[in-house]
């Protein structure tokens, strides 16, 4: 493993930041500060952090409406992200996109996407762009288990395969396709099995193990950078909250949620850093304090930010 203590602490800090960010979003949603759709990634922070830690800043990324984690980890400023959620002019999209459309081309973030599966062909295009430029940039697209049944997604896999595009298809299999078990919606055991039909190698990883996720992604990234083409990664994960705020969750048992909650990486990972990697409790606590301070700043910035002016309504339609 080529991660040292500093890397691991950094990964932990990022996971915690995402968790705190999402918890803050839920709070803001409940008190009416955030409107519309909100799909927290609580429970799925490890996939975002493990995968993104294997990327460079100039790599391209598309993700889904549950993509706050990936967006932040790719480098989106959490202050701009929270301001966007509050609909403020300082938001990353000046308040025009909201929760499901975080975009920041400066860090390679080509957008979350509110249409299931739609980010995949866009990421293939970005990968092709890198290939045509002859540089070793890669593209990664995150999607949920539900996306594997979308036509555009299948088309993206095929295009990536025939173009040998430098891309990683990263499936966050959280077992539920919105509010329906994915097991009822496909006739295969592992979603990674889909990749073989397109001639794309695939691997299934524990989505609650940041280190394993990093290593699997790094292998895929190395392969893509060196001209080896696409890889499909399926991370077995779980969201510890509903699909969206207000989800009554009749489709799963409290026992099942409790089982996964017992493995929640936000608690398990720092413990593992102490047990296995010589990280001290003081270092963990310092990381936690740092995140708390950062979040206080994020919230203050967002709440203090001005609303967009009405002049903005008809701006940014055409370049």
């Amino acid at each position: 493993m080529n991660l040292d203590k500093r890397d691991l602490l950094q990964m932990y800090k990022m996971m915690l930041l995402i968790r705190r960010f999402e918890e803050q979003c839920v709070e803001f949603y409940k008190n009416g500060e955030i409107r519309g759709s909100l799909h927290p990634c609580i429970g799925q922070e490890a996939t975002a952090v493990g995968a993104c830690y294997a990327l460079r800043k100039d790599d391209y990324l598309t993700c889904t409406y549950r993509g706050h984690g990936q967006a932040l980890d790719k480098g989106l400023d959490p202050k701009e992200a929270m301001a966007e959620l509050l609909g403020r002019s300082t938001g990353c999209s000046k308040g025009k996109g909201g929760s499901m459309h975080f975009t920041d081309p400066d860090v390679g973030l080509l957008g979350e996407n509110a249409i299931v599966g739609a980010g995949a062909p866009i990421a293939v295009g970005a990968a092709l762009s890198a290939q045509l430029d002859g540089i070793d940039r890669v593209s990664i697209t995150f999607f949920g288990d539900g996306a594997v049944n979308q036509g555009a997604f299948a088309e993206a896999l095929n295009l990536a395969a025939v173009w040998n595009a430098p891309i990683i298809f990263f499936c966050e299999n959280n077992l539920y396709s919105e509010m329906t078990p994915i097991a009822d919606m496909v006739n295969i055991e592992q979603l990674a099995d889909r990749a073989a039909g397109f001639g794309i190698p695939a691997v299934t990883v524990d989505g609650y193990d940041p280190v394993a996720l990093y290593e699997a992604t790094l292998a895929a990234v190395d392969r893509a950078r060196s001209g080896g083409g696409p890889t499909f990664i399926e991370a077995m994960t779980y969201r510890l909250v509903g699909h969206m705020i207000g989800d009554t969750e009749p489709y799963r048992t409290q026992e099942e949620v409790a089982e996964w909650r017992a493995r929640d990486p936000i608690h398990a990972f720092p413990q593992r850093l102490v047990d296995e990697f010589g990280v001290s409790q003081a270092e963990i606590e310092a990381a936690q304090a740092e995140v708390e301070a950062q979040m206080a700043e994020v919230v203050r910035f967002a709440l203090d930010s001005p609303w967009p002016s009405a002049d903005e309504i008809a701006q940014d339609i055409f370049a």
Partner: peptide, 17 residues
């Protein structure tokens, strides 16, 4: 594969092509 290649075109366009 119209959805695929128009989508790829969007990705190309967003990245300088």
């Amino acid at each position: 594969s119209e959805a695929g290649f128009v989508g790829a075109a969007v990705g190309l366009a967003m990245t300088g092509k």
